[in-house]
Design a protein around this nucleic acid. Structure first.
Length: 420
RNA sequence: GGAGGAUUCGCAUAGCGGCCGAGUGCGCACGCUUGGAAAGCGUGUAUAGGGCAACCUAUCGAGGGUUCAAAUCCCUCAUCCUCCGCCA
């Protein structure tokens, strides 16, 4: 939810934000109108209500004819209060519904444009020259078979398309990645968390996943709960309706993530780049608004550190306005080099959601002037399947075996994943 | 799944249909007292919206209802606790 004060005082800012995101601009003016109506309805209701309260209080003291007269007037007033209250509730609901549809106000620093208009901030590491190494790189599906780490065929047999088994070294690789991630996050001051992955509608809505992203979310009809697509959801809703102290607060959540991947038919159908279920370690920060931009860069640094430790060439991009989620004002993606695709692919991502989620979820902190919404930020530390793809493809040998990056060896116990 | 009990201000509790936005204790803040501390005494201490302000409005788990008036009465739902059943 955006700040309605900003909307009232600077509607152009909101209009422009919607425009560069490629979202509905007209809704801004609809909201301004609805907000005006709601505010005057509130004021009308409060005036009549105050009158009623005064009159009601006088009933007890009054006697005889006087009392009868007051009661009669009070009765009439009660009817008007009820009507005004109904009008107020309706106007507020309408304004609120519109307000929830408007995306967070974009950071002016974010590049303007669509998916292709990202700006490359930096490239780290150099893609490996396989010609020099004297062999054609195999893709992760092939390597996964050779070392018996990934089984997509049985995944499809049992669970349908975009499903997979991690077996043997694949499973061990997940444990090693998770343990390395949690160990480094803990060292950096994050509190490790294993959150629920089934959440109620309010948590989903509060984090902004029931708007444009709704079609990618699994919903369990029978119980009206959602399967989260990221632990960002339960980590944000963790402090719902609370007033926080001692900011910043940082959590590292480890959970399964579920995505319907509707509308991606034909995209990344091979392998485990795009799947319905995967595990992920997610960083989540609660900070003061004025610290949000700096925290965003810190999250990015932790992501970069992770990829560097995995010895994978990657680049960082500043995602363009049209490609941002509703909650984010700015987003950086880290994209790993995938040799068999000859391109960089997103492996981690960090978003600054400022007060958008905290306003919906009612999460505040206290300062000298009262309470204020906190800012929330999230960033992927490691999304398992994509990291496995990057590791297998970048560190493969000609026979299909895979060298383990030094940082992972203590967690995996071996230097090399060998041909099975 | 079945049977009971609970849900009030950070915590613990009191609360008669109007004098209850709500008392008390603890905690916290400030002041007095003291050589210093503890104790003691005094004052303050929920959130949100509106107004320059006095102040007004809303909120006693949530939503409905009865009433001139609801923390208090009625209905529905949620959550927690205890017991029984089932179960990783």
């Amino acid at each position: 939810m955006i700040d309605l004060k900003v909307l009232r005082e600077n509607p152009d800012l909101v209009r422009n934000s919607q425009k560069v995101r490629g979202e509905d601009v007209a809704i801004v003016d609809q909201l301004i109108a609805a907000d005006g109506i709601a505010r005057s309805a509130i004021s009308d209701f409060e005036t009549i209500r105050a009158e009623q309260n005064v009159l009601s209080k006088s009933v007890g003291a009054a006697k005889g004819d006087e009392k009868a007269a007051i009661l009669e007037k009070a009765k009439e007033l009660a009817g008007r209060v009820k009507a005004a209250d109904a009008k107020r509730a309706e106007a507020e609901a309408k304004a609120n519904e519109l307000a929830l549809k408007i995306a967070n106000i974009i950071d002016p620093l974010a590049p303007v444009g669509g998916e292709a208009d990202f700006v490359v901030i930096e490239e780290i590491g150099t893609p490996r020259d396989f010609t020099k190494d004297g062999f054609e790189p195999k893709d992760h599906v092939e390597i996964g078979k050779i070392i018996k780490a990934i089984d997509t065929e049985r995944g499809a047999k049992v669970a349908g398309s975009r499903s997979y088994y991690l077996t043997g070294p694949g499973a061990m690789l997940e444990f090693a990645l998770v343990n390395y991630a949690i160990a480094s996050a803990t060292k950096a001051g994050f509190i490790p968390v294993i959150p629920p992955v089934l959440v109620k509608p309010h948590a989903m809505e509060g984090t902004g996943f029931l708007g444009q992203a709704a079609e990618n979310v699994y919903h369990l009809e029978e119980d009206d709960v959602y399967l989260v697509g990221t632990s960002e959801v339960p980590l944000a809703a963790f402090h719902m309706d609370e007033i926080l102290e001692n900011l910043p607060i940082r959590y590292a959540g480890y959970s399964s993530c579920f995505r319907r991947e509707a509308g991606t038919y034909g995209k990344d159908t091979r392998g485990i780049i795009r799947v319905h279920q995967f595990d992920k370690v997610e960083m989540f920060s609660y900070v003061k608004l004025e610290d949000a931009a700096a925290e965003h860069l810190r999250l990015l640094e932790w992501e970069k550190d992770f990829l560097k430790a995995m010895e994978i060439p990657f680049r960082v991009i500043d995602v363009a306005s049209g490609d941002l989620g509703a909650s984010a004002i700015r987003k950086f993606d880290c994209e790993a080099w995938i040799p068999t695709q000859g391109t960089y692919r997103e492996v981690t991502s960090t978003s600054n959601c400022t007060e958008f989620q905290s306003r919906r979820l009612n999460i505040r902190y206290r300062d000298e002037n009262g309470t204020k919404p906190v800012a929330t930020l999230n960033g992927t530390l490691v999304a398992i399947p994509r990291m496995i793809v990057a590791i297998l493809e970048n560190h493969q040998n000609s026979d299909g075996s895979v060298n383990v990056p030094a940082a992972l060896r203590p967690f995996l116990g071996v230097d090399k994943l060998v041909v099975a």
